[in-house]
Design a protein around this nucleic acid. Sequence first.
DNA 1: AGTCAAACCTGTTTGC
DNA 2: TGCAAACAGGTTTGAC
Length: 306
Amino acid sequence: MPELPEVEVVRRGMGQRVVGASISDVEVRHPRPVRRHLAGADDFRARLRGTRISDVVRRGKFLWLTLDSGEALLAHLGMSGQLLLVPTGSPPEPHLRVRICLDGGVDLLGRQIRFVDQRMFGGLSVVGLVATADGLPGGLGSAPDPVPPLLPVPVAHIARDVLDPDLDEAALARRLRARRTGLKRALLDQTLVSGLGNIYADEALWRVRLHYARPTDTLTRPALAGLLDATRAVMGAALAEGGTSFDSLYVDVNGRSGYFERALAVYGRAGQPCPRCGTPIRRDAFMNRSAYTCPRCQPRPRRARW
DNA sequence: AGTCAAACCTGTTTGC
DNA sequence: TGCAAACAGGTTTGAC
């Protein structure tokens, strides 16, 4: 569910308050959300207990807490995951999976971190950090980074996201045009550029009037630059509204929904008028999910790929 | 090496 | 009304 803006809302909500706090205890209530922690739930708990949280970092849709142990608590929300800061005594949420008890922190007032996840596509793990030039071995340019980012091992292959000031646009354009696939498929590939999911890919494509099945190798550099700008604009706007919530499955750390849904131009609006030209929005089956377009603003290319 | 479909889950909505 | 199928914001795995 959550794409970059939703995860960033969580990072901001978490960041100010948990940095400096220590993890006093951990309760794993369901094994699935820690399945990526291969050493098991007991090891997961042991590695967290007694560590201090030094930072809250995000790349694309991945979020992690850096720990003074040198490792990181890595989180991915999947389709329905939530990270909440709730008072220790409040009753367990129906899909509460992991509880992380804290000492200290700023204004925490006895709150604990709760990982709540209905569908359990998301998860938590404690992992090591690795230095990479750009998070991509031999990938997105070898432009030297003044400070090579330390990334959790499972994030090392994820590209910089569209809001990252160090995103190498020229290298991204080269890689994108070298692909033999459709544009939206490429936008959703997190190893190319990260942060975009089904909602914001459709919204950005609509803004620049490009069809999702446009072959990536037919795009001009200016068109790609415009598309990238559109992704930033739509994500920036979503961030300002607290993200997109279709239901109670996406919420901030305080359990509150975002309000960007009402600003969506095409996503989830099949049959409703295009805000630009009034033509009914169309929904197509795409990669086991959906793609929404305005058939007039975004005509299907003659040579379509996906 | 690059591309793509299936699998991983539970809950709600849609259609017969 | 009741039931089954379709669908939901994502990533990984493995087949080709």
